[in-house]
Structures are given as C-alpha cells and as structure tokens.
Design a protein around this nucleic acid. Structure first.
Length: 194
DNA sequence: TATGAGATCAACT
DNA sequence: GTTGATCTCATAC
C-alpha cells in the first residue's frame, strides 16, 4: 500500500464545485476515527440554501474565514453537522459532509452511536457527526490539515454520481450533491439514470 | 416501503 | 413564535 497523500489547506482554496467531487473517495479521520467519504453537498454563497446566503452572523462566521477549516453547526437542535470551508477567504462557501464509509475506529463509532449496523453508522450528516464525536466547541473553525482532523486524497479516481440535494426547501433543483456510485453507505440512494 | 410526529436549539421575523 | 443542510420510532399498508 502506498502512503496516502494528506490534503493541505490549498486543496480547499478553490471553487466548491471543483473540490466537492474530488472529496468523494477521500479519507476523513477525526482523532484517527473515520473512513472514506461517499457523499457530500456543495453550498455556494450565492445559493439561497446556504447558511451564508443572508450575510454573516455569529453562527456562520467561520464560513467567511479562510478555506481549509471546519464549520460545525447545530441541526434541528439535536445534531452536529460538519462542513469544509472552500474557495478564497471571504467567499463563504462550503461543503457539507453527508456520509462516509466507516474504515477506521469502528468500535469507537459503534460506542458513540449505540449501533451495530455498520451501514447506519455514518450514513447522514447527523449520524456522521455523532459517530466522529463532532462538537462545535471542539471543532468549529479548526484546521482540516491539523489534528484532530486529517483528510487524505483518494487512491484512485472513483466513479462519481451527482444529483439534487436533500433535506432543503430552497434551490432544490441544483444538482450539487455528489456521491460514490454504487456505494451502500450514502444517506439516500441517488436517482440512477435508466 | 411509506408516511408522520417528536426531540430540541439558535437564528431570524 | 416559526423554521430548519436530521434522525428515530411508531403506525399503516
């Protein structure tokens, strides 16, 4: 096995539409726990569904900061969701990590989730946040190329599929959800053509 | 398989 | 007071 290449901050300093598909197949670790990214969604600041669309607030402040950092927010009052900030500083665009295929630290994830089913461990932004132990106090604004985070490039270029985003009420027609084709670990199956 | 309600917090009107 | 980038459990086919 060749040594995997760790992604640095400059990887994220590009358009979310370039970075998002390239994250599919990459490996995300938090304190050594995580796995292969199989599903993400891009949120551009011109997009009505993005948290940054209405301007800077206390919650979304890190979206307006430099790329290569983590943006963590509370969803529906219960879940912590993890985003990667992209593009040049100030553009306030990011990528929501929606699902990973667990490969490292399975026991820790099972313990936090209280589940045995590997497939349901990280198949959704809220589940992923719980399995990786994500919390705003610990991870909001943290660098993605420093501990406890580590992101590694895919070994080979995976087959990627795109589709409309999930769980939002605005701009639902934009096909900015990306996934690993055929993966059983996505939060919801992609509408396959044909 | 599909639909519906509850949980629970912070931003926003 | 309402809404949301969600998940789980219950109930109905």
């Amino acid at each position: 096995m060749p040594k995997p290449k760790q992604l640095k901050a400059n990887f994220f300093a590009r358009s979310v539409h370039h970075v998002a598909p390239e994250l599919i197949g990459a490996t995300l670790l938090v304190d050594g726990v995580g796995g292969r990214i199989v599903e993400v969604e891009a949120y551009h600041h011109t997009d009505p569904a993005a948290h940054s669309f209405g301007g800077r607030t206390e919650r979304n402040a890190v979206m307006f900061g430099p790329p290569g950092h983590a943006y963590v927010y509370r969803s529906y009052g219960i879940h912590w969701c993890l985003n990667f900030i992209c593009e040049p500083e100030g553009s306030a665009s990011g990528i929501l990590i929606r699902a990973i295929e667990p490969t490292a630290g399975l026991p820790a994830m099972r313990r936090r989730r209280g589940l045995k089913d590997e497939r349901l461990l990280c198949s959704g932004p809220g589940r992923l946040g719980e399995a990786l132990g994500i919390a705003r106090a610990k991870h909001n604004g943290a660098r993605l190329d420093h501990a406890p985070f580590a992101v590694f490039a895919p070994e080979a270029r995976p087959e990627i599929i795109a589709g409309p985003r999930i769980g939002i009420s605005k701009a639902t027609e934009l096909p900015w959800r990306y996934g690993l084709k055929g993966s059983k670990f996505v939060s919801k199956r992609f509408p396959e053509a044909g």
